[in-house]
Amino acid sequence: MADRHPQRCGARGRTNREAAPRGDRFRRLIDQGLNWVVVRYPQPNSTRRADGTSPVRLCVGCRQRASAGELSRVVASDSRLVVDERRRLPGRGAWLHPHPDCLAKAERRRAFPRALRVRGMLDTAGVRHYVERLAESKAGVDLPRPERTRKQVDPS
């Protein structure tokens, strides 16, 4: 009877006889005399999907569409804006070209509170510092400005 109805453990429903691969790895490391273990999972090098495309996002400053790799994610935290470099912070995010012009346009339009659905003004000093630091690091290289293209209307 025990073979027909093995006792289940864990959320994934593994039996006691089946060991989770990660658990075996930890157990093996602990047996070797390590007191603590830090496991770092590899980060993807790009934002490309399995089918070769990348997600498209809208910059809140210039309102241009661009791939997520070209834009920086910004999140509201305690009435201030924080640049989410790893794109893992919780909450609603807004996307911005890391260019001073796009930041100035977004501030002038008050686009951050609207995009993040937050009441009141947000402190943009952290984002401004990030954008300026990035502009200084690429001082010799011209930053590509997002180009404004006119939408073509079908005359028919």
Rank of each mutant, 00 (worst) to 15 (best):
H5P: 04
R110M: 05
V131Q: 00
H5Q: 13
A2E: 15
V131F: 00
T47E: 09
N16T: 13
V39W: 04
R145C: 08
L29M: 13
L143K: 08
R92W: 05
V38T: 15
A111F: 04
V127H: 00
A106N: 01
L134S: 12
H97I: 03
R14S: 06
L96V: 00
R145H: 12
R87S: 07
P21Y: 08
D123M: 03
S79K: 09
G126M: 03
L122K: 01
K105S: 12
P146V: 00
T149C: 11
D51C: 04
G126F: 01
V83D: 00
A104S: 09
T53Y: 06
G52N: 07
T53P: 05
G52S: 08
C9I: 14
R65D: 04
A76Q: 01
A94C: 00
C9K: 15
Q64H: 11
Q64K: 06
L34M: 06
E147R: 13
Y41S: 11
G91P: 02
R119F: 07
L116V: 02
G10T: 06
R148V: 07
E18N: 10
S137G: 15
A19F: 09
P42R: 11
L71R: 00
R128G: 02
D51T: 03
R87I: 04
W95L: 00
F112H: 02
D142Q: 14
S67A: 08
L134F: 14
